[in-house]
Design a protein around this nucleic acid. Structure first.
Length: 425
RNA sequence: GGAGAGGUGGCCGAGUCGGCUGAAGGCGAUCGCCUGCUAAGCGAUUAAGGGGGUUUUAAGCCUCCUUCGAGGGUUCGAAUCCCUCCCUCUCCGCCA
């Protein structure tokens, strides 16, 4: 959620910032309603103040044994007026919310301006795509031949876009999760969490998952106000909802492995083969709660932490700064990490690292009390995948495949895998 | 799932037959005093949100409103009464 005061006082700047991401924000309407809101507040509060003092006088009169019937009658009328004003006010506030909650975050100044992903800027490239001396196979073929990925049976058990991993495949998935968590907790200083996999609508709204556009992507339980976790960002970022932290508790750096579920309703037809786009996928998430003035640097270190996985796995990748028009709803700045996938003959997103500034914190009401005292301030939140497990799986078997159909296990994973190569049974 | 108890400020914990309790008391925290240092002691301050005013903005200050799990109701007036929901705890049942 954007800062109402800023929308009020810097309307034109905010409008321009939102335009840079292709949003024509109804700020004129917002200003109108905001003005209306304040008028109603003033009116209602005057009447409430009157009622409060009158109530005191009624009590005093009663005590003194005097008759207060006239005053009581008058206050009954005032009470009704107050009720009417409060109802009007609630209507106006709902209209305001409807506008504000649909407004995305404004991009930071160093975000490349452009309408969509074509304006994204590559900022870093590490490693060289390997030149194969043979025709490399896509991971879905390799996986089937090695009998480690079984999409037919995944579909039988659930439906299409669900996968059954077998043998060394299941082991590789688990190895990756453990490797990621061990690195982030052991060397990068994150605390490991394992949150609930079902989350309520309050949490979903807090992180901005339930916008008009996105809500259909989520799996919703029929009989409960619960959703299947769409990304660990949701349960993890919500842990401090409505809390005031102490300044010296910050920064909080946490990591969590969690299965994630998305319907991907609008994406039918894209990435239909293999592990790239699944309804259920594993992800290790990195989340940070930080002091506002540190969030810029925290995004750099968070991104570097995610990149370290790719470096250790010796997978070619690049880092891309997303353009304003390509940013996620709540993000003020995002780096995508893209890994080289031979089957795509291109780089494919494997992590997305974002700085939300106080956008999520405002919605979630996560604040900290400054060490020197003073009013609570909103924290800044950041998060990134570190990494998407299924896509890493795909990248490994494609990039490490051999002409004989085996897959060499990357050095960093060998002790997790207990083998140096994946071979057909 | 069944029975009972309860949800009050950063934390613990009072709140009588509805009115002077936004909330006693304690802890913690901050500032000051005291002390050779530490501890102890003494004093003061210490909820959040939202309006209005003041200030060039912010801070600060003045003032008002709201908030005692959430929502609704009764009343001139509710933390205190009524209804609905949510959550926590204890016992039983069921299980991993």
């Amino acid at each position: 959620m954007l800062d109402i005061k800023k929308l009020r006082s810097q309307t034109e700047e905010m409008k321009a910032a939102l335009e840079s991401r292709g949003i024509d924000a109804p700020l004129d309407e917002f200003i109108e309603l905001d003005k209306k809101r304040r008028e109603l507040i003033v009116d209602a509060e005057e009447k409430k103040a009157l009622r409060n003092t009158a109530s005191d006088r009624i009590a005093a009169a009663r005590k003194a044994g005097e008759d207060a019937a006239g005053m009581i009658e008058e206050m009954r009328r005032v009470g009704e007026e107050i009720k009417a004003l409060d109802h009007l006010l609630r209507d106006v506030e709902m209209q305001l919310d409807a506008i504000v909650l649909e407004l995305p975050n404004t991009p930071l100044p160093d975000v490349p301006v452009g309408p969509d992903e074509s304006a994204n800027v590559e900022v870093l490239r590490v490693g060289e795509p390997r030149s194969f001396g043979f025709q490399p196979k896509p991971h879905w073929d390799l996986g089937a031949e090695l009998d480690i990925i079984d999409q037919e049976r995944g579909g039988k058990v659930a439906e299409s876009r669900f996968t059954l991993l077998k043998g060394a495949g299941a082991r590789l998935e688990r190895a990756l999760i453990n490797f990621f968590l061990d690195l982030h907790t052991g060397e990068h200083g994150y605390t490991e969490l394992f949150p609930p996999i079902l989350v309520n609508s309050e949490s979903m709204k807090g992180t901005g998952q339930l916008t008009k556009f996105a809500q259909h992507e989520m799996y919703k339980l029929r009989d409960d106000d619960l959703y299947l976790n769409p990304t660990a960002e949701v349960p993890v970022t919500n842990i401090f909802r409505d809390e005031i932290l102490k300044e010296d508790e910050l920064p909080v750096h946490v990591t969590a492995y969690l299965p994630s579920f998305r319907r991907e309703a609008g994406a039918a037809g894209r990435d239909t083969r293999g592990l790239i786009r699944q309804h259920q996928f594993n992800k290790v998430e990195l989340v940070k709660f930080v002091l506002p003035e540190t969030s810029t640097g925290e995004l750099e270190s968070l991104t570097a932490n995610a990149e370290e996985i790719l470096r250790r796995l010796e997978l070619p990748f690049r880092r891309v700064a997303l353009a304003s028009g390509d940013l996620g709803f709540a993000s003020a700045k995002t780096y995508d990490l893209e890994v080289w996938l031979p089957s795509y003959d291109d780089y494919k997103e494997i992590s997305s690292c974002s700085n939300y500034l106080d956008f999520q914190a405002r919605r979630l009401n996560v604040r900290y009390r400054p060490a020197g005292g003073g009013r609570p301030q909103f924290v800044h939140t950041l998060n990134g995948s570190g990494l998407a497990v299924g896509r890493t799986f795909a990248a490994i078997i494609e990039n490490y495949q051999n002409e004989d159909g085996t897959v060499t296990v990357p050095e960093a994973l060998r002790h997790y895998m207990g083998m140096d190569a994946i071979r057909p049974l």
